[in-house]
Design a protein around this nucleic acid. Structure first.
Lengths: 239, 239
DNA sequence: TGATTAATTATTGTTAACAATATTCGAGCT
DNA sequence: AGCTCGAATATTGTTAACAATAATTAATCA
């Protein structure tokens, strides 16, 4: 009955590994908001010591994916509608600033890189690989921030991006279409290549508002026990 | 020789207390950038267990005030000039967004509250209480964010404000005039009361650029041992 | 039954001892 | 001296046992 019983070795996962797996489980909403995350249970599940779980939970709490209450442990966070709105409002601010910064310094090879990303993203859509398409679509936003070259802006945007799926899921029963419209990304890149800040920002804000519009009512949908953590992830790559 | 030898009780400080005192020491640059922060030494200094110090250092690392390297401990952070510039650029973005948000929803009692804050700030300046004036001047910015009502923006601004003094100190040998010009705060409040976003943002950006202009060269100024932590703080309030 | 409280169990929080890793110091050498 | 290597020391990292707290159950009474 131990967690150690697979065909191949199955080395004990690192702290980052555990973090990633719990985070992914939350974002795939295999763990619903409000689910209690008990330390010993998680430790057994992953075959690691409780101390490590403890550190991971603290880190997750810091990125607002879990909520920690003194002496009462951790639960998957249930962001309020207000928090979701604040998050999106801030995202518009940050992404606008990213575009403005980027356009002021963008070079030819950056544009080529963006074009390349767009192409791969589109291929994933057309090739009917939604998981891959979603990942690439998120990467697009991250990449803009990276290219803009402001590390603080980049950190904040990454924080927001990390929190976004939970905010959407928490107010949407199911994960209806979290991904971006590829077309809008194209229009944004076009505006960037023309150094047209105004259009780029406008389209980006439209784009984000369109995503935000999915946040509506409350869920009251509860957990299903956290053995779901052991289920293979969306794309079961055990590389 | 123990740390427990004062006249009155001197209860063992809480985690937050220790955090606050180390942070304050960094910001008062009683601990210079680069200073090694050894766990046992700190634990003895504060009369707490090493585990608590460990948690505190991790928290400080998260707000970029200390740098942690695996197996090699923690040092007071030495932010680069680039990081300082990114921080200020982001701050302009955030504060502008705060003003825009705030002006869209500001009410009469908010304006009264701001007027009141301005008055107290001015009194501190005139009364020749620079420490108090600085604190109030920082509070002004925090308060604008709080009143704007976007918790994400508020969190980010607080993060930036927390990091700002170190960035300035690290590139300025000494802490020359970190505080804001009270006059500019007045102009900003005036613009807010007229719902004049454009002016408010312009003045704020000028205001921030003026502070940023103080960042210049590198320091290479090293620590003096961390017993400085035990020195009473700027304002020795032992309430 | 339903409410209240005590006893039991489960869970989180802390710590002291140990392990692993880095740093320092010095001997021996060229 | 300056260098290399290895032992000794110092420092950080982990863990198992314990303590403190919360949640659950059982017992009692109205």
């Amino acid at each position: 009955m131990s967690a150690q019983s697979d065909s191949n070795a199955e080395t004990t996962p690192s702290e980052d590994e555990v973090l990633r797996r719990i985070e992914q489980a939350v974002l795939d909403h295999r763990l619903a908001p409000g689910t209690k995350l008990k330390e010993v249970q998680l430790a057994n599940l992953f075959g690691v010591k409780r101390g490590l779980i403890r550190k991971v939970l603290t880190r997750l709490a810091h990125s607002s994916l879990v909520q920690q209450t003194p002496n009462r442990g951790a639960t998957v966070a249930s962001p309020s509608v207000k928090e979701g709105q604040d998050l999106f409002a801030t995202r518009r601010v940050i992404e606008s600033a990213v575009l403005e910064t980027l356009i002021a310094r963008v070079e030819e090879k950056d544009l080529e890189h963006l074009a390349d990303m767009l192409k791969r993203e589109q291929q994933a859509y057309l090739g009917d690989e939604p998981a891959q398409a979603l990942a690439l679509s998120v990467d697009f936003h991250r990449e803009l921030a990276r290219m803009a070259g402001n590390s603080v802006l980049e950190t904040y945007l990454n924080d927001i991006i990390r929190r976004t799926p939970l905010v959407i899921l928490a107010h949407l029963g199911d994960d209806a279409d979290n991904r971006c419209r590829n077309h809008e990304h194209e229009v944004i890149v076009d505006a960037i290549s023309r150094r047209d800040v105004k259009t780029a920002v406008e389209v980006m804000n439209q784009h984000l508002l369109q995503i935000e519009s999915k946040i509506r009512h409350k869920p009251e949908k509860q957990n299903q026990g956290l053995a779901a953590l052991l289920r293979p992830e969306a794309n079961p790559d055990l590389t």
